[in-house]
Computed example of a mutant assay.
Amino acid sequence: MALLPNRNTQTAEAKAEKKAAEDDVMVREVDEAVRKDQFENFGRTYGRPLLGLLVVGLLAFGGYLFWQSQQEQAMEQESETIVAALDQLQAGNLDTASETVAPLVAEGEGAVKASALMLQAGAAAQSGNSEKAAELFGQVADDADAPEAYRGLARIRAVAVRFDDMPSAQVVEQLGSMAKPGEPYFGSAGELVAMAYLDQGNTEKAGALFGQIAKDDTVPESLRGRARQMAGMLGVDAIEDVDEVIEELSGPAGQAPQAAPQGAQ
């Protein structure tokens, strides 16, 4: 005959479980109360500073977006100004072209200012004022804020517009470091330096430099052609591919070469 569970034992176990459940509820309530109190203390201590930081961050982000928008609008306006000046320059309105970009020269920076100065220098050169053109090109060449590509080109143009009046030694001094294979403006700088060597009577250096230009695939073909002719006149063989040169001189399918258009270099 099986023994029945002791009722007193069951009652004790039930009370123990109930007590444990009540204790667990009490612990959770106390924990939540402590957490709430800590949160309120944290909010009272750090709430306002954090809110202030959040507001400052939002204002800063909004200010950045506004500044970026203003920058983009300014860049669009500057681009439109330069394009308008180029149109005037191509139309032969040299003074109007220079006046159009005058505000960019006065207030612009970096590439914008350099572009405006280069345009004004080009207008001065076209009008025959080589002295003013050289001065404006020189400003770009000496501007540390201008991109290096602009500075190099401006330095070459400054020498080119007054080449006839410059001592040959000065040409070599100013462009000698650029007249080397691998340099960005090797062809243009090298041609001017080689001509300066000719003025000095140094045909050996001139011929060697013309030969290097003629063999450099990175140099425009029109410039390579001139260099090839000059090198040949100075006794330097600058022809690597005879068939290619013959094809260039005779035109496609062996046709006779056509006359160069007037003004072509």
Rank of each mutant, 00 (worst) to 15 (best):
Q90V: 01
F210I: 08
G187W: 12
L234Q: 08
S98G: 13
E148Y: 00
A158D: 07
E191N: 13
E135W: 02
G57P: 04
F186M: 12
A264M: 15
A21R: 09
Q265P: 00
E22M: 12
L175Y: 08
T45H: 08
A125P: 10
L104G: 10
V159R: 02
F137W: 11
E240K: 13
V193R: 06
L94W: 10
R35I: 01
K36T: 14
R224D: 08
V27T: 12
Q77F: 11
S98Y: 05
P220Q: 05
E78V: 03
K15H: 00
Q73I: 00
A91D: 14
L58H: 05
P257E: 03
E183T: 11
G235T: 08
K132D: 14
L94E: 11
Q88W: 04
D199Y: 01
A154L: 07
Y197N: 10
Q262I: 13
P252F: 03
D243I: 11
A154N: 06
S250E: 10
I82H: 01
Q258H: 03
F42A: 12
R7T: 01
P5Q: 07
Y64C: 06
R35K: 13
A16G: 08
A238V: 06
G57E: 06
Q170E: 15
I82L: 15
E80T: 14
A14N: 08
L223N: 00
A214K: 04
F210S: 05
E80A: 13
F61K: 15
M166K: 10
A208P: 02
T218E: 15
P147I: 10
G62W: 08
L58K: 07
I156P: 01
D142F: 01
E72V: 02
D216I: 10
G63I: 15
M166N: 06
Q10D: 14
V159F: 04
P49G: 06
D143H: 09
A116K: 09
G263N: 02
I246C: 07
L50A: 13
T81V: 04
L3G: 03
N6V: 01
L94P: 11
G122T: 15
A259I: 11
I156A: 03
F61C: 12
A259D: 11
R224E: 09
R224G: 09
G207S: 05
L51C: 03
G251R: 11
V83D: 01
D199I: 05
A125V: 07
E183L: 13
P181E: 09
G251E: 00
Q77S: 09
L65N: 02
V25A: 05
P220C: 07
A102R: 07
L59N: 00
N202P: 02
D243T: 13
R28K: 14
A111M: 11
P261W: 04
E40W: 01
G187F: 09
P184T: 12
A20F: 02
K205I: 02
M26K: 15
Q258S: 08
L65Y: 00
G152S: 09
D165R: 14
D217G: 02
A102L: 15
T218K: 15
F66Q: 14
G235L: 10
E131T: 12
Y46I: 14
A231M: 06
S177Y: 05
M166T: 13
G152Y: 02
L59D: 03
A133P: 01
V171D: 11
G235Y: 09
D164P: 10
L175R: 09
D216W: 05
A189Y: 03
K215C: 07
A214S: 12
A133N: 04
G62C: 03
P220A: 05
T81L: 13
Q90M: 09
G43F: 11
A260G: 05
F163M: 13
P103R: 10
